[in-house]
Design a protein around this nucleic acid. Structure first.
Length: 585
RNA sequence: CGGGGUGUAGCGCAGAUGGAAGCGCGCCGCGUUUGGGACGCGGAGGUCGGCGGUUCAAGUCCGCCCACCCCGACCA
């Protein structure tokens, strides 16, 4: 490709709305342009890299038995109503009507369509296991797109769907994806970590996220360096320390005027925060069948911990959860700041499992300016749900080995879910088993966002001058520059390299050397060749790797061999990253 | 959805007190220059985000709206 004809141009200044390096550099180097919030065009350079990323994904998913298909971007709402997600998913799903007034949706994922295909195509256990996948556009109307391609609304995703007769088969395909995903990311030279995650709107029993660790990420991970435990903070557990065993004391009301915080309460009564109960009021939208019901949730955790809203959402099976307003709290009969789980109306009471383990806590008295001493679960109040509600914090003990964990930020570049039969049951995707009985197909779903992956690679591989693409995903193998006075030699080199089947970006523009070198650094093709009067005087063409300082001069007759050898070396460096990763569930 | 910020040429930005829309880069032409974002001369390019208002006069003041960015809520 001649740069004189390249569709995109580089930008000298940093666009004002780019905050993170991958966003800035992809814009400046001419890979992407933004159309609207979270909606991007991918220009020729990005398209070439994306195609390479997608081909890596194709190869790895094919290798574990995948069959590529293409499923629609527009779905009739009917299949989404059958699985009830039409009612459960909020505003991030785009809904519209076709000209006949039928409800339609824009695809945000494809479990429904897969299950619909399966009910038409799969009839016998003899056809299973199977794996289908596609690489296709998704629309999710994310409330807050940010950081360039890291979090967008329209994106392309490789999503695969496993189909099995039993849990054992699902486990096998799940583990195959686990390793295949590491292989995909490693072949893109992106270091990732698999962590346990929330199943979210997908439902299902087990999920891992593949996280690229970077401060620009928006997920928080809890990581134990000692034993390797790693989990998204949304689901991260901690080793909980029960309160000291002691005899239950009688409840006693004390005046605590003006004290509405745990910190103030602990100080005022001179007790540790762990001897108090913290109350949090949330308003939950819960889907019952096809209707949504709002219910006030009263969550109780020990005073020395915080509520994890994801855990709370899952505990009450809420579609949405938001802080309750003062009016809503008052309507339940509770007194904000002095709330007690005793005697509330129309309220779902949820307590952390540390509460029953912690005797004689200080809790609100439901009376302005008063608290109760020695409140005990079971004896003094009951809950609709008892379970883990605690938000893991930096330094909390690891649930596996009790060592202190630390928090890190990461970008979720892939995820894998064990779905089970939720979708196949809802849509009647059944097969006849050996014994003649009809059973729902057991499904798994597995996704990688290709644009987010591209951005993560850019985030990982750049310096102050620009991008530094791994050879496996670089838009071109070689960036050839010809400087003034060596145009003819540049043309010859370009011709030879292209004829040898190499992917060459040829800077044939009439620009000063400084401009050409700066653009080459910015675009980040891994091998740079320079043909100039100087290089010719030195005996040929200068070759330099983008990630190294030193360069060599190659006789003009040997450039194809030299470049081919360098490409092989670069590929081997990436291949060395592809290793087997122990499965961790 | 809450909080904060920004909208002036393709990009980056300046335009106190209301009084003729500017600068740098980029772009076009001519010439000089050519190993790390060269230089001279001459050009093109603007509904100042939109609508309404105040005023003799609005990029500037007021109101409403829109878009984009950041933080949070949210999110697979």
């Amino acid at each position: 490709m001649r740069m004189s004809k390249l569709f995109s141009q580089t930008l000298r200044d940093k666009p004002s709305d780019a905050e993170v390096p991958s966003h800035e550099l992809l814009l400046r180097a001419g890979f992407i342009r933004q159309l609207a919030a979270g909606i991007f065009s991918y220009l020729p350079l990005a398209k070439r890299s994306l195609t390479k990323i997608e081909n890596i994904m194709r190869k790895e998913i094919d290798a574990i038995g995948g069959q590529e298909v293409t499923m629609p971007v527009v779905h009739p709402a009917q299949i989404w109503k059958e699985t009830l997600r039409w009612f459960q998913v909020g505003s991030e799903m785009a809904r519209f009507k076709d000209k006949s007034g039928r409800d339609m949706v824009l695809a945000m994922t494809h479990e429904e369509v897969v299950a619909d295909l399966v009910r038409r195509e799969v009839h016998s256990y003899r056809q299973l296991p199977m794996l289908v996948y596609h690489i296709q556009t998704k629309w999710r109307d994310d409330p807050r797109p940010r950081a360039g391609l890291i979090r967008v609304r329209e994106f392309t995703m490789k999503d695969s769907y496993s189909l099995d007769v039993d849990e054992e088969g699902l486990d096998k395909q799940y583990r195959a994806h686990y390793q295949a995903y590491f292989d995909i990311f490693h072949r893109c030279a992106l270091p990732v970590r698999a962590v346990k995650s929330d199943v979210g709107m997908m439902g299902g029993s087990l999920a891992h996220e593949f996280m690229y660790l970077t401060p620009v990420g928006e997920d928080t991970l809890m990581i134990c360096d000692n034993c390797g435990y790693a989990a998204n903070r949304q689901v991260a557990r901690i080793e909980k320390v029960a309160g000291s065993k002691e005899a239950l004391k009688p409840v006693k009301k004390v005046a605590t005027p003006g004290i509405t915080t745990i910190e103030g309460l602990a100080e005022f009564l001179d007790v540790p925060e762990a001897k108090t109960a913290k109350a949090v009021f949330m308003m939950a939208t819960i889907t019952e069948g096809e209707v949504d019901v709002d219910r006030l949730v009263f969550a109780v955790v020990r005073g020395d911990t915080e509520v994890n809203e994801t855990k709370l959402t899952n505990a009450v099976k809420a579609k949405e959860l938001r802080p309750a307003t003062d009016e809503e709290i008052a309507a339940s009969g509770a007194v904000a700041g002095y709330a007690s789980p005793k005697g509330l109306k129309d309220t779902l009471i949820v307590v952390d499992d540390l509460i029953p383990e912690s005797p004689n806590l200080v809790a609100g008295a439901n009376e302005e300016g008063h608290h109760l001493l020695n409140v005990n679960y079971e004896r003094d109040f009951h809950a609709d749900f008892v379970g883990d509600l605690v938000l893991a914090q930096e330094g909390d003990p690891c649930p596996e080995c009790k060592e202190a964990m630390h928090a890190e930020r990461g970008v979720e570049v892939g995820n894998i879910f064990k779905l089970g039969t939720r979708y196949s049951e809802a849509l009647g995707a059944e097969f006849l088993d050996k014994d003649g009985s009809s059973k729902p197909v057991i499904m798994g779903s597995y996704g990688i966002g290709s644009g987010r992956l591209l951005a993560s690679i850019a985030e990982e591989h750049h310096d102050e001058h620009g991008l530094i693409w791994p050879i496996t995903v670089s838009p071109y193998h070689v960036h050839l520059l010809s400087l003034k006075g060596a145009e003819k030699d540049g043309e010859e080199a370009f011709k030879k390299l292209v004829e040898a089947g190499l992917e060459v970006l040829f800077d044939d523009r009439e620009e000063s050397p400084g401009v050409k070198f700066a653009d080459a650094d910015l675009i980040g093709v891994p091998i740079r060749l320079t043909v100039s009067k100087r290089s010719l005087k030195q005996g040929g063409v200068e070759m330099k790797r983008r990630d190294r300082e030193e360069s060599v001069v190659i006789p003009s007759g040997e450039i194809v061999d030299a470049v081919t050898a360098e490409i092989s070396a670069l590929k081997e460096e990436v291949q060395a990253l592809v290793v087997e990763v122990p499965y961790d569930d």
